[in-house]
């Protein structure tokens, strides 16, 4: 399964991914023209500061499987693209009820009018995995923009294997130090958000050697 993988310790907080994402999802796909578009194009990736100085995390839809958002969407506006294993939204079906956002473990869904077509009303916007770009053999826009290697695109297990050797010592330390923090996924939708928060915090801490 190919995916966008995050190396949080490499994120310098430059927010180039946000910019590239907004441009990719604009009508013109041109940075000079995109800033003058109405509605303004919106990024679907959000770089959030970490708890420690100069740490940050580029947060985006993880395309979960099973996807809690898909499970709760009352209009079946959220579906899975089987070929690329991506969770996709259908703006035409979206009623902006925000159920998806309420259960999203990563708060990755935002509500705006789409700049690159779709109904002239606020709908759920989230990462579409740059489906068009990857179908054309290009990396996702955020990955292309990331010059520090915080965002990489590739086969999930290969990327993990790369990191495994590199971070073995950190992982061993964290496994001992953070036994109490449960990262087992919850059995019910209700628990997804809390689980996401725990997982994110743990992840951030692991990568900065604080667990």
């Amino acid at each position: 399964m190919k995916t966008i993988f995050v190396n949080p310790e490499r994120c310098v907080g430059c927010r180039q991914c946000e910019f590239a994402c907004a441009v990719e999802h604009s009508a013109s796909r041109d940075p000079a023209q995109a800033v003058f578009e109405s509605p303004p194009p919106r990024s679907r990736i959000h770089v959030m500061p970490g708890r420690w100085y100069n740490t940050s995390f580029p947060n985006r839809c993880r395309h979960c499987n099973p996807a809690p958002c898909q499970q709760v969407c009352p209009t079946a506006a959220i579906t899975r693209d089987a070929e690329h294993d991506l969770v996709m939204t259908d703006a035409g079906k979206c009623i902006a009820c925000a159920m998806c956002a309420m259960v999203c473990p990563f708060d990755a869904v935002t509500f705006h009018e789409a700049a690159n077509g779709g109904p002239a009303r606020v709908v759920a916007l989230k990462c579409d995995g740059c489906l068009e770009r990857i179908a054309a053999g290009q990396p996702p826009a955020c990955v292309e923009a990331c010059k520090s290697g915080a965002l990489v695109y590739g086969e999930l297990n290969e990327l993990i294997a790369e990191g495994r050797a590199r971070e073995a010592s950190v992982v061993l330390t964290s496994a001992v130090a953070s036994q109490s923090a449960s990262t087992r996924p919850p059995d019910h939708v209700l628990g997804w958000r809390a689980w996401g928060t725990t997982a994110t915090e743990l992840n951030e801490g692991v990568h900065h050697g604080r667990h």
Partner: peptide
Amino acid sequence: PQCGYCSL
């Protein structure tokens, strides 16, 4: 792509 903020 070059820095979008700096380009603008």
